[in-house]
Structures are given as structure tokens and as C-alpha cells.
Amino acid sequence: MEVVFAITSGVLYATGLYLMLRRRLAQIIIGIGLLSNGTNLLIFAAGGLTRSNPPVVSEATGQLQVPYADPVPQALILTAIVIGFGVIAFSLVLAHRVHQSLGTDDVDDIGTEARR
């Protein structure tokens, strides 16, 4: 499954980067979205994959049920997901405004439009 995760993460990176190299703002933002998903998978796999119990202490025993998943990468990813959402939400609205004011969402045109 590590191999499968690796390939998936690579595909998300490749498609994300490809989209980030496009000229349309909307495509760039979608690319960022794919890239953050790929990064989350990367961190997740780096922590070591185990098909195991969630790291939650059982009420009955007061202990974690072994084997349990590593909580550290999970905490990191949780932060990353939320921040990634913030970034996408803000850049989407920003792109929307750019489109409204300048009438274009082509990054190569934005400079010329803004100077007008």
C-alpha cells in the first residue's frame, strides 16, 4: 500500500503543479487544492501506514488500543487541511475580485490590465 500511496501522492503533485503553471487563475487555485491533498498524503505516509485503531484512549481500559495510528502526523495534517482551506477560500475570492475589476482571469493579462 506504501507504493500505492506514493503513486497517488505523485499524481496529485503532478496534476497540481501542471495546473499551477496554467494562465487561468481558477485553474491555478484548483492546482493548489490538488497540491495540498498530495502533501497531506505525503505527510500521512511519512508517518508510517498502519491499518490500525484511531489514537483514542478507550474509556473502559484507560489505555490506547494497540496497534494505534501515530497521532503526530495526524495533528500536522489537521492543521494543514484547515490552513489549506483558508488559502483556497481567500485566493478564490481574490481571483473573483480581480476578474470583476479587470475583466480577465489570465495572469499574463492582469499586469497589462492593471496598468491601464
Binding site: E2, I7, G10, Y13, A14, L17, A45, A46, G48, D70
Partner: peptide
């Protein structure tokens, strides 16, 4: 993008399969 994606795949494979026990867990 494809080449960099492949590098990322290799990276995930490398760190994800390394025998480095987590002490923090």
C-alpha cells in the same frame, strides 16, 4: 510536472518505508 511528481513519489516511498520508529507517538 510529471517528472517532479515522480520525484515526490520516490520521496514518499523513501520516507514512508524507512525504518524510523516514532518516539513521539
Amino acid at each position: 510536472a510529471g517528472v517532479v511528481g515522480a520525484v515526490i513519489s520516490a520521496l514518499v516511498l523513501f520516507v514512508g518505508t524507512a525504518d524510523e520508529p516514532s518516539r513521539l507517538a
